[in-house]
């Protein structure tokens, strides 16, 4: 049976992991290579790197980091943040990334999804969607935001998810802007709505605080994978602890490494 994936997310700026981590085990908690190895040893199922560098030089250092990570870590790597062209994608895939994630660029130029899928295969193309609940709507609706959640687009999240898949997205990385950073649980309704709307896997993101939140996103939200940052980085829960919890509740997870 296909197992549910547990995915730590690392924010990288100028080649360094930011949003502080508190691993006592690591001498340098900002080193993406050391962190990737740590999560690999722990049994994470996949890693997502989100580049928040503002400069081309900053992005170059990420490409170098991906090269070094893929020499040491034998698990799937997804890299996103600031990708605008298929040339950007190629550079990261060549460096050792398995998938690339596009967000703002996909909304502004949806052909990029198709071009990427044609060049590298759908399985490489993750479309990341940042969605915010519309308070004004009588039935639940969510709007797509771009530019790191700063700019509303007027686009319906479910509609966009379907379009992205039609154009060739192999996976959706779905973040609830409302839930993100609050550690009060994922937006289950949003996760379920998107997961039921598309035929490709959906990664739920934003809001993980307790292990039960992950369970709910996977079961009630019907997500195929859950992404979390702070609960793992600050050591609130370890990967083995997380998997033991989910396994005990009857979910298929990968326990051995």
């Amino acid at each position: 049976m296909l197992t549910k994936r547990i995915i730590p997310c690392l924010d990288v700026k100028d080649g360094r992991v930011v949003k502080g981590t508190s691993f006592v085990q690591l001498r340098d908690a900002g080193d993406p290579v050391a962190l990737a190895s740590f999560y690999y040893q722990q049994g994470a199922d996949e890693l997502v790197f989100l580049d928040i560098s503002a400069t081309p030089e900053g992005r170059d250092t990420l490409v170098e980091a991906v090269e070094r990570i893929s020499e040491q870590v034998f698990m799937p790597l997804t890299v996103g943040g600031g990708l605008r062209t298929t040339a950007d994608m190629r550079r990261l895939l060549k460096a050792g990334a398995d998938k690339v994630s596009i967000n703002t660029a996909a909304v502004l130029t949806p052909e990029l999804i198709q071009e990427g899928a044609e060049k590298f295969g759908s399985q490489c193309i993750v479309v990341a969607i940042d969605a915010k609940r519309l308070d004004t709507s009588p039935e639940p609706k969510w709007e797509v935001y771009i530019h790191s959640g700063q700019q509303p687009t007027g686009i319906d999240a479910l509609l966009w998810a379907r379009q992205a898949v039609q154009k060739g997205a192999g996976e959706i990385l779905l973040t609830s802007i409302d839930a993100d950073g609050h550690r009060a649980g994922y937006d289950i309704e949003l996760t379920r709505a998107v997961s039921e709307a598309v035929t490709v896997p959906v990664i739920a993101s934003g809001g993980a605080g307790e292990l039960e939140d992950l369970y709910q996103a996977l079961v009630t939200g019907k997500a195929d994978a859950v992404l979390a940052a702070s609960i793992f980085h600050y050591g609130t829960y370890s990967i083995p602890e997380t998997k033991a919890y989910l396994a005990k509740k009857g979910l298929p997870v990968r326990i051995d490494r």
């Binding site: 197992t3 199922d45 399985q123 035929t199 896997p201 195929d224």
Partner: peptide, 10 residues
């Protein structure tokens, strides 16, 4: 089922 079949399986 979700396609691609993506993830860890036995």
């Amino acid at each position: 089922l979700k396609v691609p079949h993506m993830g860890w399986n036995q």
